[in-house]
């Protein structure tokens, strides 16, 4: 894009060219700038953030909930909350961590409400989660790690994801999953041991 000394546009008109280039510019813009614009009320910038980070959030929710169906609900709710709380975001550059925190909170809320309503038998829920595609050999280490995380027992996986994606403390994880902090430590230790072996084993 050539730097011009200003468009001196009359009467607030814009070129079609400028419309396109603003959108292009937005798609290549940092989280911090998009978050600031979204906090100012720009829904287009917020939508770009949702497109950029939404898929990861949805996957995290899906793994925490052991349900892809619920994941869409939870992630939509999480982004709606994010839209309302953008002004609270102290450091717009840390947007992704902030979103991960919100989506994991919403996921835990959903888990709690399942427990209270006794809606779903958790073991059954975990069993019906579609297994990763084992037919295709994992060519990438990332695929191998994805499958390894998915093979963790549900409780260990939840502890691991809350810790590693959203940075929850042992106390927070314990409270969320109705465990003691030392049990959480134990779960994390087991999960970590398994994943270390898987990671090393691939090499």
């Amino acid at each position: 894009m050539v730097a011009r000394t200003g468009p001196v546009r009359r009467d607030g008109e814009t070129d079609r060219e400028d419309e396109i280039s603003t959108d292009d510019l937005l798609s290549a813009t940092s989280d911090a700038t998009l978050a600031a614009r979204a906090a100012d009320g720009d829904t287009r910038s917020f939508e770009l953030l949702a497109r950029r980070h939404g898929p990861l959030m949805r996957v995290v929710a899906g793994r925490l909930l052991a349900s892809d169906a619920d994941a869409d609900d939870v992630v939509q709710d999480a982004f709606l909350t994010a839209w309302h709380r953008l002004a609270d975001l102290d450091d717009p550059a840390r947007l992704r961590s902030w979103l991960l925190r919100i989506v994991s909170n919403k996921s835990i809320d959903r888990l709690r409400s399942r427990r209270e309503h006794d809606d779903v038998d958790e073991a059954r829920q975990a069993a019906t989660t579609p297994a990763p595609d084992d037919v295709v050999e994992a060519r990438l280490q990332l695929d191998a790690v994805w499958r390894a995380v998915d093979r963790l027992p549900l409780q260990q996986r939840r502890c691991w994801l809350l810790r590693e994606t959203a940075g929850w403390s042992y106390a927070e994880i314990a409270e969320a999953l109705d465990l003691t902090p030392s049990t959480v430590r134990g779960q994390l230790a087991r999960a970590r041991r398994f994943l270390l072996v898987e990671m090393e084993g691939w090499r």
């Binding site: 497109r51 898929p55 996957v59 793994r63 994805w146 995380v149 994801l161 590693e164 994606t165 994943l195």
Partner: peptide, 30 residues
């Protein structure tokens, strides 16, 4: 192993580009 966890989730998320269109539309509509 920490980094790979998040990376592997992002990798999985990237695999299916149209997957999230629906809830995103719902979100923007709301």
């Amino acid at each position: 192993v920490s980094e790979l966890t998040l990376e592997s989730l992002q990798h999985e998320a990237d695999r299916d580009p149209g997957r999230d269109d629906r809830w995103i539309s719902g979100l923007m509509g709301t």
